[in-house]
Structure formats: structure tokens, C-alpha cells
Amino acid sequence: MILELENISQAKNGHQILSDVNLSVSRGAFFVLMGPTGCGKTSLLRIAGLLDKPSSGRVMCFDRLIPLRGKERLQARRRMVTLLQRPVLFRGSVFSNVEWGLRIRGIPLNEINTKVLRVLELVDLEGYGDRDSGTLSGGELQRVALARALVIEPSVLILDEPTTSLDPNLRFDLLRRLRDLHSKTGITFIMATHDFTDALSIGTTGAVMRNGRIEQTGTIDEIFYSPKTPFMASFVGMRNVFPAEFREDGAVAGGHLVRHTSDKRGHGFLAIPPEAIVVSRKTTVTSERNHFIGTIESVERTGSIFSISVSCGNLIMISSITRSALTELDLTEGQEVCISFKASAVHVF
């Protein structure tokens, strides 16, 4: 593991920001720290980047315990770079910004020159060396900040919500760039984001935070396809999450028996992806499907698809269907319909 955080807690002005956080990041991973705004991601990244000290807990970097002060801490910090949420450039030229990290490390001038020019080329900023840092656009500023971090050739690059202030095109461009850099350089990336689609597009492993605690950690697939709590299910975009009692013949949720493929018993939750729910005007019974009769409560357009809310007794199920299916079935509010889904589509946790 290149970074391990053990029992990290942090309190500021009487507020508990982080509570007993345990996290490990393996060498070469693209680790994505997810969670809603204000859940403690930035505080955790600042501790991981050795910018802040935790109130309690241990930080291990590069297989060594990092002390709270001293030369060893500085040496470890010099092997990683944290790109702040809103990066700022120093006064002066792009070149003077990019070279600064090398200068303070006492790198010889001719070497600095070569490295800076190479890294500017890597982020597509050839010829920008003499530009005043105050005249750059948002996207260029972000790339100079990235070049300034990469020129140091860090083992770990920590990025705090790098896409937050960018428009969709620049965001897409930055994510593509980060993915390329990760595969080209072998640097371990740790990136915080509140947008889980960022994680899906570039992450290899990750963790989800909530109220200063780690809710779930694992590979990106595990996080997105096997959420362990209702919060996680909701965070990764799962809808139709219901508390249920799991019995031998199925799970009872809202008074309905829901068939599933898990052998879970006792209390828990089940989730049915909206796209797995089929809405029809007639009841078509097959042995592998769950069937419920309900009434359409609403039909809402969400992007290119439509969300149909169907009230089935105590449960309100949401199904996603295309415009053509909606037109073909001629679905309207108040209509009685049958909804069905496979037992294998039911996610149990």
C-alpha cells in the first residue's frame, strides 16, 4: 500500500469532521474518494497529502509511519502533490510557476529547463512558458497547475474535486487527460469528487464518505454494483430501495412478497434498478418474474428517458422507459398497469 490511514479522526472548533476513518490506497491505483459536498473529503485529502494533522490516528505513506512534524514528514510530503479544489498560480510567468517545485528541491537549472519544457508539452501547453499566469483561461490555469504538480514527478498525485469549476467540455477534457496520465506515468492518483460519474469513467478503486465516515470502500465495480447500505444504493443512483424482511420464500417489502436470488435471511434492504422494471397494460405471468398491479402516479421526463412512478400498495416503484415505449403503451397518470421484474434483478443488502 502506498498510503494507509488508520483510525483518523479530526475535530475543528468543536465540530467532528472525520470519525475513525480507515483507508488504504494501493500503488498505481486511480483511487476515487466520493461523497456528497461537506462530507469530509477535502479534510481527509489534506491529511493524506500531509498538509494537515489529524486529531488522532496514524498516517502511513510509502510503508512508513509519518510523524506529525520533522524532516521525515517533509520528505514524504515531497513525494506527493495535492492539487487544491481551486488551484491558484503564483505571480509571474507560466514557466516560473512550473519550475518552482524543482527550484525548492535544489534541482540544477539546465535540468529544470528540460523538465519544464517536457511537462508543458505533456499538458499541451508548448510555447506558454513566457505567458503571464494572470492572463490564462480556466482550462489553461488547470493545466498549468497540473504541469506544476507533474514536473516534480510525484509518486502520489492528490486531486481535490478538479472538475468542479469546469464547464462540461473542459471537464471531459481534464478527465481524459488524467486517465492518459495515469496510464502513461504510473503515478498513484487519489481524486475526490461528489460526482460519481467521474469515478465510473476513470477510477479503479475508491471509497464513499458520508458525515465524516467511510461508508463503503472497494473496487469501483463493487461500489457501484454491490452497494452495502441504503445510502450507498441511493448515492450510486439506485432507486426503488426498500427495507425488507428476508424469508425462505422471498423478501417481504411493503406487504409484497418479492422473489430474489439471494440466500439472505432476516432484516435488510432490496433495490430494483428502474431499467429492470417492465411496465405493461396486461399481466403476463412467468415463473421467473415478480409481478405487481399498481396505478401510475406520475410520468416524468428525465433526460432522454421517462420515469414512471407506479403505486403498488405501500410501495412506489419507479420504472425507466423510452419515449417510444411510452407512446406505444399509451401510458397516462391514473392508469392501472402491471409491473414485473426478474428475481435476478433484485439487489439485496
Binding site: V81, T82, P87
Partner: peptide, 20 residues
């Protein structure tokens, strides 16, 4: 906080950060 944090995150020691 941005300038001192940027300097520290780029590997500055305490004195280098203050001078920056």
C-alpha cells in the same frame, strides 16, 4: 489559505512557504 497550501503541497518546507 491557497498560496501557503499550494507552496506546501509542492514540497516547500516551512521557511520556503513563508518566503513564498
Amino acid at each position: 489559505r491557497e498560496i501557503p497550501d499550494t507552496a506546501l503541497s509542492l514540497g516547500a518546507g516551512q521557511l520556503q512557504m513563508v518566503l513564498k
